[in-house]
Design a binder for these strands. Structure first.
Lengths: 362, 362
DNA sequence: TTGTAAGCGTTATCAT
DNA sequence: ATGATAACGCTTACAA
């Protein structure tokens, strides 16, 4: 004997990591239990039912009883529902990224969007794959954060990202990265890397310094490069000739900067000030100088960049450049949620003078 | 004359912030252009077509020409496609959260999930709304991160979160928060707050300290409370009677801790060591002591918690407790992506002895 | 290998 | 106020 149960649902598939189907109650279940149509149930649950009829209460009760949770994915397919804003950076830790992310998230969630964070680990292929994935998920916008290679090849990549995103109605926004003049449809919210370092050098020059070194990664990424240019600007302003021997290459860790400094200072005892690409490097520089018995700022002044937490608490406290990271995130977020974008923004930075810089000794 | 175009699509709706519909090409468009069925197009594009027929190439070409981007939302409805892992914390900045997030993100993206970060700003209503929203979006799991109120009311809330998530096949995972014994289905990956502070006190006792103060926020949140208990444990171990007068209340900013210390140390000059709930507080304590002309560690030793970046570079460098934040994130991530959970985990922490602690002077 | 057809869980249209 | 019904864009038996 063969028994056929008419309304037996078909076997459920179960493909991870896909959303589990058939898990909870659906709108149809609620409607059935409340003895109304799906349309009515939908209206009631979305709070867009006219008055409150008898069915109104029944629908609510049924939803409650069944533990109904509306399927946002299905809603999205109808053109309602939430879109995500994506934040793509090379790495997640680090006060600068986190602060920018915080600014963007504030705006995004205030507007009812979800906020997705992705890291690339600096891998451009991963970055491209990520943009593709995010497009598939129909994000509202992608914030591409931080430094990028300052190459034509990258510009082509970015154009590709922008094109892919545009196909799904999403926008690409660069954060903390200068606009690409050839690609005006790619938005950019940046801060004044170059002017910041320049003002640091200016400050030192005002204190009488002339032999000023620069510590940085000196690669072709935008952030290092812009900051390096700011150093050169500062020298030029003061009529000091740029001397390539006074640039110190270092990775962005305090240990790297410390060992680079040890080697450097031995060759160049005449230097009276060191300008660093980042606070992290500056901290390493300070440690190396201290260990070498060189007094800060009596013998050598040090300037950082980023004004990260705790550098004010170092001994001596660090003179550095403060950038409005949170504000950068906010502005980018505003564009991401549909605000108007009228051209690249470059937010001003501020030199915070503290104890690590002082007059050059006579 | 009335002209009716048969295949004219209906007018598109356009409700922000919902995903823009009708934007790009659909699978049907690709199939039409390639002159195959949607099924074939789907198979080819998903790379699950058998061999490579003539149509194979045509589909690829059509997709390319149309700039087709598969709709991941629609895929999700079929049970395939990516689910997100959500990371919910009170705030985004802060090295501990960011590091945990990094660990979780590593695992999540490696398994093809998206990673969504949401902040509550410490608002429990926002937290509840967020859980609801994330359930609607059919996340795979929610990582609830950091301290929570240690109250029965919170346990009820958490149970509610867990229930809502369970309805959509998702899991709730506490990170950096002890398990709730009454609610074993809520997973927990925690680290040893209590043991960490205890070992700090033990270290001080070993150096001869007896008058040891505790600086913390002293509220009913789990993290502060656990760390406070660790302080009491440490005292008890050494047979030192707990003296409530030696607890200092402070907000979690170095400025707060500094001003609290100023007031405290005047009343209690007999204290020879201060154990702090966080590194941030410890830094404030150090600054206040330094400004008051009290030498660290000669006159007073200081212990922190978290081992955040740069505390090793302070003068003196900070003795603190290092917790495996990245690992906590990884383990939580592993459960989130479907790994087995066999009971609460409490990861060990490590006391990092540096320059801020020394023997009590004779 | 390919096509047909039946979903997935919503919302919107348009009658009633 | 409510209910049929048709989308939305995709996947996948099942049949050819």
């Amino acid at each position: 004997m063969t028994t056929t149960i008419a309304d037996e649902p078909p076997a459920r598939r179960n493909a991870t990591p896909g959303p589990e189907r058939g898990g909870g109650a659906t709108l149809a279940d609620v409607a059935r239990l409340a003895d109304v149509s799906r349309a009515t149930a939908s209206r009631v649950l979305a709070g867009r039912a006219a008055g409150k009829s008898a069915s109104h209460a029944r629908v609510l009760a049924a939803a409650e009883e069944l533990g109904y949770v509306v399927n946002g994915l299905a809603r999205s397919m109808m053109g309602v529902g939430r879109r995500s804003i994506a934040f793509v950076s090379s790495i997640m830790v680090g006060p600068t990224f986190a602060t920018m992310a915080g600014g963007a998230e504030d705006i995004a969630t205030a507007k009812g969007h979800l906020f997705t964070m992705c890291t690339t680990g600096g891998d451009l292929d991963r970055e491209a794959a990520l943009i593709e994935t995010l497009s598939e998920q129909r994000v509202a916008a992608v914030l591409l954060v931080g430094s990028t290679p300052a190459t034509e090849e990258f510009e082509r990549r970015a154009q590709g990202y922008s094109d892919t995103l545009a196909r799904v109605g999403a926008r690409l926004i660069l954060c903390g990265r200068a606009a690409l003049p050839e690609h005006p449809q790619i938005a950019s919210i940046d801060y004044d890397h170059r002017g910041g370092v320049r003002s640091g050098v200016e400050h030192l020059v005002g204190l009488g310094h002339r032999r000023i070194a620069f510590v940085g990664s000196l690669d072709d990424m935008t952030t290092p490069h812009q900051r390096f240019l700011g150093y050169q600007d500062g020298l030029a302003d003061a009529g000091i000739e740029f001397d390539a021997d006074l640039t110190v290459q270092s990775g962005n860790s305090s240990d790297d900067a410390a060992s680079a400094t040890v080697a450097f200072i031995e060759r160049h005892p005449e230097v009276t000030a060191m300008v660093c690409q980042t606070d992290v490097m500056a901290v390493g520089v300070c440690r190396a100088l201290h260990d070498a018995g060189i007094a800060i700022p009596a013998q050598i002044s040090v300037v950082g960049f980023d004004d990260m937490q705790l550098v004010a608490d170092l001994t001596p406290s660090l003179t550095t450049v403060r950038a409005p990271f949170h504000r950068v995130g906010e502005l980018a977020g505003r564009i991401a949620v549909g605000g108007v974008y009228d051209g690249p923004a470059v937010l001003p930075v501020e030199l915070i003078v503290r104890g690590s810089t002082g007059p050059v000794r006579a």
